[in-house]
Amino acid sequence: MLKQQKNLLSWLGEKEWLAPLLWFGLSLVVALKEFFSGNYNNYTIFKHVYLHTISGQTLYGPYPEYFDVNNYGPLFSVLITPFALMPDMVGSILWMLFNALILFLAIRQLPLTRIQQNLVLIFAAHELMAASSYFQFNPIVAACLIFSFTLIRKGKEFWAAFFIMFGALTKLYGIVGLSFFFFSNNKWRLIYSMVIWGVILFVLPMVLSSPSYIVRSYREWYEALVFKNERNKQFDKGIYLQDISAMGFIKRVFNLHYMSNLWVIVPALVLFVAQYLRLKYREYTSYQLYILCSALLFTVLYSSSSESPTYIIAFPAACIWYVMQPKTWQNNAFFIFLLIGCSFSHSDLVTPWVKKNIVVPYAFKAFPCLVLWLVIVYQVLTRRFLRTV
């Protein structure tokens, strides 16, 4: 039976047309559906980041053109510029495809076999579709982390530094790329390259506006993030779609509404850092990939800003982990649990009653990824990564 499952996975992975078809096809279909339904509020926010930058208006206040507010850094205004200049239909669809393409290229750079890469794309295609339905920027955030990993492995610290700083100056998450610092053979080059790119990317939005406006916007961005973090804690007041994190899950399940996030984050940081006790294996590709998976999961699990579409950052880690595992029935069953509990939990494949009464109010989407992250930490500490296929 296990041999048949392995043959099925190989058959899926060998179909070169299947991975890109699902990856881009599902996202294109859902993006068109949402656009023609008028559900492209996030893209409207993104477009106005550019418009507000060139007009000198605050990037972080409410505006009548859309609901919610922008929470990305001023550098985002440069990225969104070519799309904002197009008609909404063209700009929004190309924006979605651009996000999908960047993450697709990043996954293609992973030190996996072609079949394994195809399987990661196939299994993560549904999660990408979910992010695409919101016209999310998170696929590029995930790509920044993966590119920083692959480029450091290849000794291209200068360009790895670009992705680390670009991610950090747009959504902060990019700084997690420093998790791969110890894989570099030229750490000083990585450090000074980050300084160089930090300066370049900090001033780059000034081509669209004045230096004083951009400096003020960075200060306002910090204030907006602090406010958002406080707001994310208010799930007891009806705000359920935020803080889909380890902290949010624990607070809701155990009714600990006012528990400090530090009670979860500090032990998690200790466990994350403990993985570097195995640094003597840093030349092993399997060890490096385990740290990548751990970092991608950690980024989402321990952020109070995590929403359902944010899991396009975390779920590829589950797919990467799975393709490295021996295909035992336990691993297969666990991955099915990950697929259903995480990737499909907010979809129409789950009944409305389950979503309304379990998945949403208890931030259940975080639970399968939390279990996987703990499994990965255990496997690293016990050197199980030496047994991967």
Rank of each mutant, 00 (worst) to 15 (best):
L26M: 10
P111N: 02
I152F: 01
S308L: 08
T113Q: 00
V354A: 09
L32K: 07
A160K: 04
S304T: 11
T81F: 12
I107S: 03
N186E: 11
S308H: 10
F298K: 03
Y378K: 13
M129I: 12
A268G: 07
A142W: 07
I115C: 09
L289P: 03
K47R: 10
D236M: 09
D88C: 00
S10V: 14
L262Y: 13
L94M: 10
Y290C: 13
Q57N: 14
V273Q: 06
R216Q: 15
K355P: 05
I320S: 00
L32D: 08
A314P: 06
I291C: 07
N118M: 03
W197R: 05
A246C: 10
M86D: 00
N331D: 07
F254Y: 09
T351A: 15
I102W: 02
F123D: 06
Y192L: 11
M206V: 12
I196D: 10
F254N: 05
E220Y: 07
I312D: 06
N331E: 08
I140E: 06
M206T: 11
K15N: 11
P361T: 03
F166P: 04
L172C: 12
L2M: 12
L201R: 05
M129V: 13
Y276M: 09
V371C: 12
A314K: 02
V120D: 01
A318Q: 03
P87M: 06
I102H: 00
L145T: 05
T382C: 05
W188G: 13
L201D: 09
